[in-house]
Amino acid sequence: MLQIAGRKFSSRLIVGTGKFSSNSVMKEAINASGSEIVTVALRRVDLDNTQEDIIEAIDFSRIQILPNTSGAQNASEAIKIANIGRNMGLGNWVKLEVTPDPWYLLPDPIDTLKATEKLAKDGFAVLVYMNADPVLAKRLEDAGAEAVMPLASPIGSARGMKTKEMIRIIIENSNLPVVVDAGLGSPSDAGYAMEMGADAVLVNTAIATSDNPVKMAKAFKLAVEAGRTGYEAGIIASKEHAYASSPEKGII
């Protein structure tokens, strides 16, 4: 089972809530994904406007909400937003996103580290969005993160596991759960990350903007399960040559 910050989850698929066409589609997609962790941008949360609010559409009894700091460009903004979320009563989990560049939304390693130190000290369970940098992953671990979330490729790009060499090292070295986040475009991308040994994946755009988000959510669910099961079963090494499935050697 996936374990993050002392909580156990049977699903290894985390989903995002942005980019959907409506709350009802989002709700259905979350259900179809089987996800037990759902991330929400705090900058979109408006408790004063319940009719339009994303939070209203999420079943808290079943789902761990993971507020994120998207929009924060530096450590102090991220810390402020995280605290606003906690004060709203959304709990002490936070997905830390510090993205100074509005174009590719790539995370700032320096301010991400600073904010992780501070938030961990202040009692937050910090799951950290980061570039796929193995050294930074260890630094975040030392700083008190509960999970690292390296990106597969730029967010929303659907380019798949472009950073796989670095993610491989992160998985090998990490004592924390590794959640591959951002850029997974197809179910097979997610399956591949899971086969590599990632503890979980986070998917938003690929589900929310597909023609059929509910069906796609299910596809990702299946791919994540297949990938994980394959990883646990032990995937055989690939070889240079062909080897017959029913060897004839020794028949005569």
Binding site: K19, S22, L42, R43, R44, V45, N49, E52, I81, I84
Partner: peptide
């Protein structure tokens, strides 16, 4: 906006930002 299959967002920013 809804009828077009789009999601109307009123709030996309936070005081903390």
């Amino acid at each position: 906006i809804r009828a077009a299959g789009l999601y109307p967002v009123w709030k996309d920013w936070d005081i903390g930002l």
